[in-house]
Design a protein around this nucleic acid. Structure first.
Lengths: 117, 117
DNA sequence: CAGCATCCCCATTGATACTG
DNA sequence: CAGTATCAATGGGGATGCTG
């Protein structure tokens, strides 16, 4: 059984992927690079503001790469950096844990939640 | 506690260990069972309210076992359940990730000042 | 000692509207 | 299309005080 170190960087990791939508964005970008509008479609319920905001934070954290293709209409493609990809293992572990324990908690998940990371 | 809507089981996992202090509690209880007051000492900065609250939530989630030894003064011992222990791998992964990327970025004032969890 | 009860703050999120 | 700007609400969490 892995041991959690006393001074673990969990807060750091959470600061980077703890945002309400970041794991979903991670999920999508991990499959393939996406455009802004496509991400909106793929992540139901997210507002433009939040998508832009979280993407910007993830970009600042070096998780996401933003490529602007000058054209009309505008085109911006987001993709995961190698740095961002290194998060997958840990996140996937917790995802699996969550899927294996969808038992009732004090806070109803309410969502089926399927696509694994 | 931050709640991520529909996605993979990550939201479930976060709902369970996403609390501001839960990973620290996990760290301590993973070593050995502890009493309430001892946890307070071991987790600098946590208030009684939050400690009690987070422990209750973790208990409700089946992560923590609470044993009351009737005595004067009162004595309550907390320990991790097997269920709680299954979280270690995933959490440890993210902990390690965080340790490898301790570079601060844009993160705002709400952040608990990164006192290494 | 353990741990509820209250009051209050403010950061995060949501809604809505506007723009290059 | 891909954002930015502004305003308002929600609720997590801090501080303090009280009790079995």
């Amino acid at each position: 059984m892995t041991v959690i170190p006393k001074d673990c960087g969990f807060s750091t990791a959470l600061g980077v992927i703890g945002g309400k939508w970041k794991v979903e964005i991670l999920c999508e970008l991990q499959k393939t690079p996406r455009r802004f509008g496509r991400l909106r479609q793929l992540i139901p319920g997210i507002s433009e503001k939040m998508l832009a905001q979280q993407l910007r934070e993830m970009e600042a954290d070096g998780l996401v790469r933003r490529e602007v293709h000058d054209a009309s209409p505008p085109k911006v493609v987001y993709s995961l950096t190698d740095h961002g990809n290194t998060l997958n293992d840990g996140v996937a572990s917790l995802c699996q844990w969550g899927e294996g324990h969808l038992r009732r908690t004090h806070r109803a998940p309410s969502e089926p939640a399927l696509h694994a990371v």
